[in-house]
Amino acid sequence: MEINGKKIFMKPGRTNQEDRDNFIKFWVKCMRLMSDEEWSKQQNLIINSQLQGADHKTYLKVKGLNRKLG
């Protein structure tokens, strides 16, 4: 991946956890090459999509909250 003229790559992990950890290290390297605005736009795709897809009734049940949505 090339960010602002610098190529960076993610080292594959030998286990799922190592791979996840390597992704975190890779992502932090990406963040350092980008402005806050640039990296946060990418990150917001994940955050905003989770919030938009939330199932609120099920969430209350899972959390053991015996209330109707307010």
């Binding site: 963040m31 402005s35 806050d36 605005e37 917001n44 905003n48």
Partner: peptide, 18 residues
């Protein structure tokens, strides 16, 4: 992002969560 003393300056685009 900038950490100085006890402050972090963050020029991020705010998410719905923020």
């Amino acid at each position: 992002m900038e950490l100085k003393e006890k402050e972090i300056k963050l020029n991020r685009e705010l998410s719905e969560l923020d």
